[in-house]
């Protein structure tokens, strides 16, 4: 188990950030009518589910949640010697007329979000796409920005930011590590 360089958020801080993001979503979209969440790949999915639960708690309506696997849309596949395993994407609700909020754990270069936009647009045509992330660590390589951010964290390129979630990693925390 490697040692974190610094702890950025503990379970309580993560929970409060998600509550605030949920309220911002409601404020920005004037409620949750016509709003849906789509979690990106691995850890965006449990985060989207947690946000949906909070939105339901605050507004009393169920918000649909979809999942997106962006493997087929990555721009760096030819740099890998073995292709990554593909998983299913699932968007069961109608996209036209819907405000889709993409959800991911960390926003860094922006390439994952670019791939997610292409993947989503090949499924259908939402009215609006917004982006919610738990951590924005800077260093964008594309003109992409988040609408809702849990915490802004300045980092260096020699660091890695990891979000741990109980659904995947048995614990809730966000930490920075040095790259090996």
């Amino acid at each position: 188990m490697r040692e974190p360089k610094a702890m950025l958020m503990d379970a309580n801080q993560m929970n409060r950030a998600l509550s605030r993001i949920a309220h911002e979503i409601i404020e920005r979209n004037k409620g949750t009518e016509g709003v849906a969440l789509v979690g990106i790949r691995r850890r965006g999915i449990p985060l989207a589910q947690r946000l949906a639960a909070k939105l339901q708690e605050f507004e009393g309506r169920e918000v649909p949640v979809g999942t997106l696997d962006i493997t087929l849309y990555r721009d760096d596949l030819t740099e890998l010697s073995a292709v990554p395993q593909v998983h299913r994407s699932e968007v069961k609700f109608k996209l036209p007329g819907t405000v889709v909020i993409l959800v991911d754990d960390v926003l860094y270069t922006g390439r994952t979000v670019r791939a997610a936009l292409d993947a989503l647009l090949d499924i259908g045509r939402p009215a609006v796409i917004q982006l919610a992330v738990l951590i924005d660590r800077g260093h964008r390589e594309l003109p992409i920005r988040a609408d809702f951010v849990g915490k802004n964290v300045p980092t260096s390129r020699k660091e890695v930011v990891e979000v741990n979630l109980t659904e995947v990693d048995d614990e809730d925390f966000v930490a920075v590590y040095d790259l090996p």
């Binding site: 696997d69 087929l72 849309y73 596949l77 395993q85 593909v86 998983h87 299913r88 994407s89 292409d118 993947a119 090949d122 499924i123 259908g124």
Partner: peptide
């Protein structure tokens, strides 16, 4: 197993409205 699992996932592309990925 790897081929069958991958095929199961990719089948969605052949059956949805936009039958294209850039991979």
């Amino acid at each position: 197993d790897l081929i069958l699992d991958t095929a199961d996932t990719l089948k969605d592309i052949a059956t949805r409205p936009i039958k294209k990925v850039p991979t």
